[in-house]
């Protein structure tokens, strides 16, 4: 039992989260999806994110679902993201079902709820494919191409750059609390509850020191960005063009588009 709880605890550790975040962002840059041009993927995403909401045929939706499930599989997404996805889908449909029964629904409500769930699932999986499959820099360049402000595009890439540092800092501050503070005894249900409250409390207390430490660090970063010409580049259109020159569509993009279209067409044919 002890071992099991330790393993469970391990899964919720910041270290694990940090690893999963990194894995999700950068651990899959050798997949097929990662080789596709970010612009192709973004267009693809708009299509697959919107289309399901205008379709009602379960077979068609199921076809789309299988397709995005395959693309998600191809991105080698981190297990934590998949877990969150399943958890989200199940709880959402579960609660809809319970609410509908509460208001006098019967088994017949199950059908529409399933269709609804399928639509949400398709959109979510398409998002996972695009946002996990692309590493943040490529995503940022893609967004930049579509005219998104540079500050926003840069902050996506930069957030991933400092996220690991941030999480490590947070982890260490939490540890300071845990090691020096006195955690309540976690025996029995009341103990477990007390322990949970305690955990939440120290997480809250850790935020202020975290913010202060980050503020201290960011001073250098801000100065360095200035020195390294970040602001200068922002005011210059030619440099933006140079940045985007590294994007390029290739055969992978063509294949990906063809496969997507054929699959969709096939689905429509079957229906």
């Amino acid at each position: 039992m002890k071992v099991v709880t330790n393993q469970l605890w391990d899964k919720f550790s910041i270290e694990f989260l940090r690893n999963q975040v990194l894995k999700n962002a950068y651990g899959n840059d050798d997949t097929v999806i990662a080789k596709i041009d970010p612009r192709t993927l973004l267009i693809w995403y708009v299509f697959f994110g919107v289309l399901p909401w205008f379709m009602h045929n379960p077979t068609l939706l199921l076809g789309l679902f299988i397709f995005v499930a395959v693309t998600t599989r191809l991105t080698k997404v981190a297990p934590l993201v998949l877990f969150l996805f399943c958890f989200g889908i199940l709880t959402q449909s579960g609660y809809l079902l319970i609410v509908s029964w509460f208001f006098g629904g019967d088994l017949a409500t199950l059908g529409p709820i399933l269709i609804m769930t399928l639509k949400v699932a398709i959109t979510s999986l398409a998002s996972i494919t695009v946002f996990s499959g692309l590493n943040p820099d490529r995503l940022a360049s893609g967004l930049l191409w579509f005219g998104c402000p540079d500050q926003f595009a840069f902050s996506i890439a930069f957030a991933y750059r400092i996220l690991p540092i941030l999480m490590e800092e947070f982890q260490n501050i939490l540890l300071s609390h845990r090691l020096r503070g006195k955690s309540p005894n976690s025996i029995g249900w009341r103990g477990k509850f007390r322990y949970l409250i305690y955990q939440v409390k120290i997480i809250m207390f850790s935020f202020l020191p975290l913010m202060l430490n980050i503020a201290k660090r960011s001073r250098t970063t801000v100065e360095a960005l200035e020195l390294r010409g970040y602001r200068y580049a922002n005011q210059n259109k030619i440099i933006k063009k140079m940045k985007l020159r590294q994007l390029g569509m290739g055969t992978v993009d063509v294949y990906f588009a063809i496969v997507s279209i054929i699959w969709l067409w096939g689905c429509f044919l079957i229906v």
Partner: peptide
Amino acid sequence: GYVYQDFENQIVCPT
């Protein structure tokens, strides 16, 4: 060119 003492905060790209 300038290299900071807390050089890790000077590095802004992931690769």
